[in-house]
Nucleic acid binder design. Structure first.
Lengths: 142, 142
DNA sequence: GTTGTTGTAGCTGATAAAGTTACAACAAAG
DNA sequence: CTTTGTTGTAACTTTATCAGCTACAACAAC
């Protein structure tokens, strides 16, 4: 089971905004054609990024822009913005193990901390990469 | 989107095998009642673990056992055994970005390496935890 | 042969992502 | 104030995956 493509779409969107912001109005239709997904998918993701204070979207006249400098937007910020892991961790735990069994009774106590550590390692790595890093890489290719 | 519960079930199964192997025959029905899922789910996971060389399952007479010492079974081994991420990485990339757009043309080159690093960080952490570690923790509680 | 178990097929239901259509809300330009 | 282009969002559909369930052939041991 994979993590949804919303994270990679979010990165793509922010790169497009940064690259094209001075040349044209960056609308959800334009973004949809670069990412090659439906524009409603883009608008839904833009809303999630907006709620997280990462982008500004102007209704009516249209267009999206970043709400803060790229150095202050990490992959982890994007991940948290678009992936709804509220409260739940990365790993889905089988609920309701049999408490009459000593293993079932203690499996959570034994495993929860380990899984949190795994998730923390992933998040630390995500937090070490900013959109500015990614944008710099992109500039050398374009 | 969360990673399926098969990983946590696999850990639970191995703990049960280790705890009960000397007292009783560890059947899929017994495991199913401790984990509290359908026995077919257990059997499917046992098959995946068997293909990975982690457990032995005896048809007919019944029962499951570990195929190698717990110190040589890491969380990463289990993850790879039960989570079908063959070739595909942890993150689902939006396919087919628009190659007429400079961003769409380069998004893969720019992002793939970063995502691999994130996944590698997660897998390093998973690889540092063995079933023996988890079993030791469990013994102190039971 | 009887019994208990595994291995697996086939179906169902639940959940989530993403596509699609449609339209009200809104801003700016004419 | 009307037109135009766009966002925000609802509603439905499609697709994919997980997990529950039933059923039964294959198999081992007694």
């Amino acid at each position: 089971m994979q993590i949804s493509s919303r994270l990679t779409v979010a990165v793509h969107v922010l790169l497009c905004i940064e690259v094209f912001k001075d040349q044209r109005k960056v609308t959800s239709d334009f973004l949809a054609s670069s990412v090659n997904v439906n524009s409603v998918v883009i608008r839904r993701i833009l809303q999630q990024l907006k709620k997280a204070g990462i982008v500004r979207v102007t209704r009516g006249s249209g267009g999206a822009d970043t709400a803060r400098p790229l150095e202050e937007i990490t992959l982890l910020n994007l991940y948290h913005a678009v992936e709804c892991v509220d409260g739940e961790g990365l790993f889905h735990f089988h609920e309701d193990p049999n408490s009459l069994c000593p293993v079932g009774r203690n499996i959570h106590a034994v495993l929860d901390g380990r899984l949190e550590e795994v998730q923390a390692a992933m998040e630390r790595e995500m937090n070490s990469v900013t959109m500015q890093d990614i944008f710099n890489d992109a500039k050398t290719l374009m």
